[in-house]
């Protein structure tokens, strides 16, 4: 069976440093205002302390990608290993993918006038390397996994604060964060 690549975010280890997102800008040479990965703090109603637990998200490389279905120019492609690739060179900048993706993965590049998004660094994967963001994660919170291989227990597909979209079947998996016992005044 072929691979199905996916991100695993261990929110219990994630420190919200944004190193993953900056490493992505660094390797993929994004425009100064562009990001392909964003780190979203969890609301206090989800994690009890403000700005202390995070969802680090880029593209979820969905099983049934909304972007791919929405794109009128066939600029999205799903590789057999699950990676959803956007081809900037055929994009006409209609933004329909941006409207359609519930996760905000495709974003509009104003300077070059097209949509773009996380490629899961497939050029790196094809060379036997980890995606830039995964390599950058210094706590081991962000990992690359194969959904078609045996997975560790305790993984969550739809943590609170993350759009629940069973029709799309996003590939990213999560481990939920814990909060410390507190002694405070």
């Amino acid at each position: 069976m072929s691979k199905r690549y996916a991100f695993l975010l261990d929110m219990d280890k994630c420190i919200g440093c944004r190193g993953c997102a900056m490493a992505c800008k660094n390797f993929n040479q994004l425009q100064p205002d562009m990001v392909w990965r964003q780190v979203y703090p969890l609301d206090e109603s989800i994690y009890p302390h403000r700005d202390r637990a995070f969802l680090s998200l880029s593209c979820n490389h969905c099983d049934n990608p909304a972007c791919l279905a929405a794109c009128p120019t066939c600029s999205y492609e799903k590789r057999p290993d699950g990676i959803v690739v956007h081809h900037q060179e055929t994009c006409i900048g209609c933004s329909n993918c941006i409207r359609s993706c519930p996760y905000g993965a495709p974003r509009f590049n104003k300077a070059e006038k097209h949509a773009e998004k996380c490629s899961l660094c497939h050029e790196r994967l094809d060379a036997g390397l980890q995606p830039a963001c995964v390599q950058a994660c210094l706590t081991g919170a962000l990992q690359l996994i194969d959904l078609n291989a045996p997975l560790p227990g305790g993984l969550v597909q739809y943590p609170a604060g993350y759009p629940n979209m069973p029709r799309l079947n996003p590939s990213t998996r999560f481990i939920l964060p814990r909060a410390p016992r507190l002694a405070r005044r």
Binding site: C17, R18, G19, A21, M22, A23, K25, N26, F27, Q29, A132, Q135, A136, C137, L138
Partner: peptide
């Protein structure tokens, strides 16, 4: 682009959010 040196077990292939802004 820049990356952390994998030879150092301390850096271990990863820079921080600041280090990745160097380019």
């Amino acid at each position: 682009f820049v990356e952390g040196a994998p030879e150092s077990t301390f850096t271990k292939g990863s820079l921080c959010v600041k280090g990745y802004t160097y380019p």
